Simulated assay, not measured.
Amino acid sequence: WHGGSGVVVLPCGAGKTLVGAAAMAHAQATTLILVTNTVSARQWKDELVRRTSLTPDEIGEYSGSVKEIRPVTIATYQVLTMRRKGAYPHLELLDARDWGLVVYDEVHLLPAPIFRMTADLQARRRLGLTATLVREDGREGDVFSLIGPKRYDAPWKDIEAQGWIAPADCVEVRVTLPAGERLVYATAEPDERYRIASCTHHKIDVVKEIVASHAGKPTLVIGQYLEQLDEIAASLDAPVIEGKTSVKERQRLFDAFRSGEIDLLVVSKVANFSIDLPSAEVAIQVSGAYGSRQEEAQRLGRLLRPGDGNKTAHFYTIVSRDTVDADFAQNRQRFLAEQGYAYRIVDADSLGDLTS
């Protein structure tokens, strides 16, 4: 990146924040950083204070709870696109300033209508950052027209070979729906079938077996259906982070996980974006957004950080065979194959041999 505009694609843990900091140092100008949530905003601020000569007073947060404009301002997409009486007051306020640089974190989100309007912000330079430039609607090209050309795209396996991210063992564990659930699935409306297949109670037993086999290792259990996550959290006696969890409580749990005070967290899709969990070694996915490749990148990216001793990360996804859950899993297989990762499929009944 030489001071113009463009997009940088790097895996989670490979230093996207540092790339942003380097662009800011090169630009030597007022900077607006757009992020997906308040937790991410505060992590950006902490990292900039730790890695650069910026002081906390020089970095402002512009979110739902705080409205600060400083030489470096970190704002959430949500607050900028908040509409009031037909107007966008926060977007208009920040657009009135002459930014020397705008950094778009998770830039793959930009083509979505609610985020797209932020691309009109006044700026002399734009930098987009993302772990993978994949969209299920095929509108990756819109990112380049809104921000600028791709400046750098590092293959995940190349970054792994250089020691910047951990190697990963990716396993799909297939379960069979019990007879009663198969009947419910067969007679359900099409838009309900994925939820039924994803939330089979058989998955809870598999989760418990995997967690036990990696006892003591920092482990995330990830899903999208809150009732399922609450049930899993109760069965594991583990804390859960979901949309209703306060920012303060999220930060407390993430800090406890990062420090090793707790080694097991159940998380919803709120942890998909911009959450720094550098010590995660095991992820167990029980349900996702219909096999979204972008979501797979974010979830696998929770693990691909060096950590201590460059240990191998373990990514498990639990899938109900002969259902739409298995059909959507093909997107995951394709994404991981594109990134160069081997992808094993095992039966839940033989899981003990695999994890022993």
Results as ranks from 00 to 15, higher is better:
Tyr62Trp: 06
Lys67Ile: 10
Leu121Gly: 07
His214Ala: 07
Gln122Thr: 09
Arg302His: 07
Leu109Ile: 09
Asp142Trp: 11
Asn272Pro: 09
Ala186Gln: 04
Pro190Ile: 03
Gly64Arg: 13
Pro155Glu: 12
Ser65Phe: 11
Leu351Asp: 00
Gly309Gln: 10
Ala14Glu: 14
Pro56Cys: 08
Val79Glu: 00
Ala186Glu: 03
Ser292Met: 12
Glu192Ser: 12
Leu336Gly: 13
Arg50Ser: 14
Asn272His: 09
Ala283Phe: 07
Gly64Leu: 05
Ile345Gln: 11
Ile69Lys: 13
Gly243Arg: 03
Glu136Pro: 05
Glu261Ser: 10
Val102Ser: 01
Gly141Asn: 13
Gly352Gln: 15
Gln285Gly: 06
Asp237His: 14
Pro11Glu: 02
Glu47Asn: 09
Tyr341Lys: 09
Leu94Lys: 01
Val346Asn: 06
Asp322Thr: 08
Pro190Gln: 04
Ser292Phe: 13
Thr245Val: 14
Gly340Gln: 02
Gln294Glu: 04
Arg302Glu: 06
Gln162Arg: 15
Ser40Val: 00
Gln294Phe: 07
Ala342Ser: 04
Tyr225Pro: 05
Leu264Asp: 09
Glu140Thr: 12
Ser5Val: 05
Ala179Trp: 10
Leu253Val: 09
Ala197Lys: 07
Lys45His: 11
Ser198Lys: 05
His2Lys: 07
Gln339Ala: 09
Ala179Phe: 13
Arg299Thr: 02
Ala22Gln: 10
Trp156Ala: 13
Pro155Leu: 08
Tyr104Gln: 02
Asp153Glu: 15
Gly100Asp: 05
Pro218Arg: 10
Lys67Phe: 13
Arg293His: 14
Arg344Ile: 06
Leu54Met: 10
His2Phe: 15
Gly163Arg: 08
Val102Pro: 01
Leu277Val: 09
Pro11Trp: 00
Glu209Gln: 14
Ser279Glu: 08
Leu94Asn: 01
Gly6Cys: 11
Leu220Glu: 12
Val324Pro: 01
Arg252Thr: 10
Thr130Arg: 00
Phe273Met: 14
Pro89Cys: 13
Glu68Ser: 11
Pro278Lys: 12
Leu220Val: 07
Leu226Ile: 10
Val107Thr: 03
Gly20Ala: 14
Ala131Gln: 01
Arg116Trp: 03
Arg116Leu: 07
Ala96Glu: 08
Tyr194Ala: 08
Leu277Phe: 02
Val9Ser: 03
Pro278Val: 07
Gly216Phe: 08
Ala337Leu: 15
Asp325His: 12
Leu264Met: 09
Ala112Ile: 07
Val39His: 12
Glu227Gln: 00
Gly64His: 06
Thr312Phe: 08
Lys150Pro: 13
Trp156Ile: 15
Gln122Phe: 07
Met117Ser: 11
Ile204Cys: 12
Ala22Pro: 05
Leu300Cys: 03
Gln78Lys: 10
Asn37Trp: 01
Ala283Trp: 12
Tyr343Glu: 10
Gln43Leu: 03
Lys150Ala: 04
His214Phe: 15
Asp98Trp: 02
Asn331Phe: 06
Leu265Arg: 00
Phe273His: 01
Gln298Lys: 02
Ala197Phe: 04
Glu61Trp: 01
